[in-house]
Write a protein that binds this DNA or RNA. Sequence first.
DNA 1: CAATAGATCATCT
DNA 2: GATGATCTATTGC
Length: 197
Amino acid sequence: MDLKQLEAETDILPRSFYERPTIAVARELLGTILVHGRTAGRIVEVEAYLGAADLAAHASRGLTNRTRVLFGPPGHAYVYFIYGMYECLNLVAEPEGTPGCALIRALEPLAGIGIMRRRRPQARSVEELANGPGKLTQALGITRRHYGADVTRGPLAVRRLKQDAPFEILATPRIGIRHCAQWPLRFLIAGNRCVSR
DNA sequence: CAATAGATCATCT
DNA sequence: GATGATCTATTGC
């Protein structure tokens, strides 16, 4: 898809979208479009990470240098480095002072697919370009430099179609965690080919 | 197919 | 000093 056309058919999500309970924000991020530079993809899988009671969430350890943004105003990016190799993108939810975020786990590539292929030569198909939290940051060129970035303006933004077709949402346990392993806080678009493995 | 090892480092104990 | 919101390549059936 052409970026100009995409911008014409979508609006940037306002800060008020993010200033709500984390689970609602996570669910409703499904189907929205993440844009960075000349690349863009539709969000097809997310996970919610809550506050103090959610021991799987980084924010449950309290306010530290790393978790600072999670306690700040909503609509900003929380990017963290993991396993010495990968970066993961989250979007901060809840009113300022209350932690909570949505981990973006998979995208359906929409624009800049050639650029994504160059950044992820291992991918054997378009579906594999961004079907995982570490893969999508590579494909879109998102790094720790985006820590704290405002996604309601600027080169990294989330947009929603002015008119979108309905789809079915599935809820499952989150992937790759030890604590709260049964909580159904992973949300995905049923039947989508780009959800993670 | 499924299972697993290895890469590699910021963060917090 | 151990751990981890991952991914890839490789092994073995």
